[in-house]
Design a protein around this nucleic acid. Structure first.
Length: 286
DNA sequence: TTAAATTCCTGTAAGC
DNA sequence: TGCTTACAGGAATTTA
């Protein structure tokens, strides 16, 4: 499932091909995938827009359009209109030649002025498309107020420590909370907790400053490594060209329940925390 | 206010 | 072999 590293890979791949392109036409074959504004208005508004930049916030893909007339607006300052794509569980955003066969569950197609097509496909339909300014989407509660970016150089261990101290939920639940930290999902939550040698069920408000620092560093390591390996294709994840990632080969605990811990050799345990399958080592994580 | 439970949805895999 | 059932999970929404 697409988390921060997978979304980052897609955005970085698409950026040089999309910036400067104009959307000439948009077709929705499954309009309810558009959550804001009404699908008809979405199609009208997106038509004729020129793409100015691409960005990512948490697991959200942000495609910024050039403002109608005024000076260019920086991507994150909530000024210009954005096409926001959230891939949910099984969403795929692909840039294809028009001759490419149409895959089942393709819900939206953006026709670009260079003849290429940007296609959104999502079998499980947990994903969504949004259009509006950052402020408008926030205000309409179509996007949550996301927590800090864990790989941002400005993000410090102290910030994580303060967040953890005020939460009584299991560490795993806090890591999955997009309002606490943006972009971490089930895979990288388990990977980070293993690297930090912390039990997923451990209550967040019981961790020491030192443990918080280990978790802070572990989050960055897990995410940066996964980006370098173009993401994990453990389920249906594909990049913008339809290719799989490489990180699934390197995962330390996710999907390895019952298999030996790479550190101590004992079988990894699997439990359910915050409604999610959670894999960890009872011997190495405390 | 925060945390936990529920819901959405289809492909895949396990079980009979 | 073929059918049925359980399971996977991000996040909005509801309940406690």
């Amino acid at each position: 499932m697409p988390e921060l590293p997978e979304v980052e890979t897609i955005v970085a791949d698409l950026r040089p091909h999309l910036v400067g392109r104009t959307i000439e036409r948009c077709e929705l074959s499954f309009p309810t995938i558009v959550r804001h504004p009404e699908p008809e208005e979405f199609v009208d508004a997106v038509t004729g827009m020129r793409i100015e930049s691409l960005g990512r916030r948490g697991k959200y893909i942000l495609i910024a359009f050039a403002p109608p007339s005024a000076a260019p607006t920086p991507l994150h300052e909530g000024g210009g209109p954005l096409l926001v794509v959230h891939l949910g569980m099984s969403g795929q955003l692909r840039l294809v030649d028009p001759a490419a066969p149409l895959q089942k569950h393709t819900h939206a197609i953006f026709f670009l002025d260079d003849g290429k097509q940007l296609r959104y496909r999502d079998p499980r339909r947990f994903g969504r498309l949004l259009l509006g300014t950052q402020d408008a989407l926030l205000h309409a509660k179509k996007m949550p107020r996301l927590g800090p970016e864990p790989i941002d150089p400005e993000y410090e261990a102290e910030q994580l420590y303060r967040e953890l101290r005020r939460r009584r939920a299991p560490l795993k639940a806090v890591l999955l909370d997009q309002k606490a930290i943006a972009g971490v999902g089930n895979i990288y939550a388990d990977e980070s907790l293993y690297r930090a040698r912390l039990r997923p069920a451990r209550l967040a408000n019981t961790v020491s400053k030192q443990s918080a620092r280990r978790l802070h560093d572990a989050l960055r390591e897990s995410l940066v490594l996964a980006i370098a390996n173009r993401g994990s294709s453990v389920d249906t994840y594909r990049d913008a060209w339809g290719e799989i990632g490489g990180q699934q080969e390197q995962l330390l605990v996710y999907g390895r329940a019952g298999e030996p811990c790479y550190n101590c050799g004992r079988p990894l345990s699997s439990v359910r925390i915050a409604g999610r399958t959670t894999v960890f080592c009872r011997n190495c994580q405390h």
